[in-house]
Nucleic acid binder design. Structure first.
Lengths: 147, 147
DNA sequence: CTCCGTGCAAAAGGTTTGCACTGGT
DNA sequence: ACCAGTGCAAACCTTTTGCACGGAG
């Protein structure tokens, strides 16, 4: 994400904290910034490793807790996919995913043609649809090269 | 899944085993049958609980290993979603998912109108698309009732 | 000053691995 | 008879929880 976009999102976050009465701590800002700066979808541990140099003595616990909080505030999203733990996505606008069945990597895909799909009218059991994303499964370039 | 469909899938599985030189063990057949019989998307542990009465002395280890094998053989799929461990899906034909953001339940959705989406032409980094599914996120009926 | 958020340590899942034995081919 | 597949126990990894302290409002 571009530097100015990150700044805007951090400002949004500050506002959201004020609105909700939650505290704007150093840890939260830096962890949010780390997710937004990431080009892919980091795991909790990758976020932890990324922020460690910037927050003296952070604990994994805090990273987990902050990420959970950020998801609840809507500042970041969890990526839904198989394999190896939860991942986080700083891109909260509608976008889609390429999921590699070999390495489980998830790559963002911007595809405006898929952003206006007709929503199913009748959802089983009264499910209320709020958003959607298309998951393309297949093999990523790196794995194809590896054979 | 209907009884006769399950039988057909088990027969397919036997054939796949022969073709691939893997062995057609009791554990594998019963575990596959359990996933196919399930109306929803069981976790590894739910599969384990389901087959325990039918295989004397099965271990969790075997259930994990067999499920992994079945995924590799293409006999079942992993459901991609957040929260609480991997889940499995006996439905390998194209279908879509309703993902509840509160309870993380994943419900199958048949929506023929979504089965012919235009695939993106140029995929980043040479990603080869093999299939796709649409993930609708929202709140399921049960969670909405709970407020 | 208050009390929410953090850090630590320990517990709690869920999943994988090494090794010896068993059952399918 | 051979060896892939299984069972057991222990290791591993990720995530959660209880409690005391510290910093944001």
């Amino acid at each position: 994400m571009r530097r100015d976009q990150i700044q805007a999102r951090l400002a949004e976050f500050d506002a959201a904290c004020l609105r909700q009465g939650t505290r704007r701590t150093t840890q939260r800002r830096i962890i949010l910034e780390a997710v937004l700066s990431s080009e892919d979808h980091p795991t909790s541990d990758e976020v932890y490793q990324a922020v460690r140099p910037r927050i003296a003595g952070v604990s994994r616990t805090t990273v987990y807790r902050v990420l959970k909080t950020l998801v609840e505030l809507g500042a970041v999203r969890q990526v839904h996919h198989s394999g190896g733990g939860v991942r986080f996505d700083g891109n909260t606008s509608r976008h889609h995913h390429l999921v590699c069945t070999r390495c489980n990597r998830v790559i963002d895909l911007e595809a405006p043609s898929l952003n206006q799909l007709p929503l199913p009218q009748a959802s089983p059991g009264g499910f209320e649809i709020q958003d959607y994303s298309v998951h393309f499964v297949g093999t990523c370039g790196a794995c194809r090269k590896r054979g």
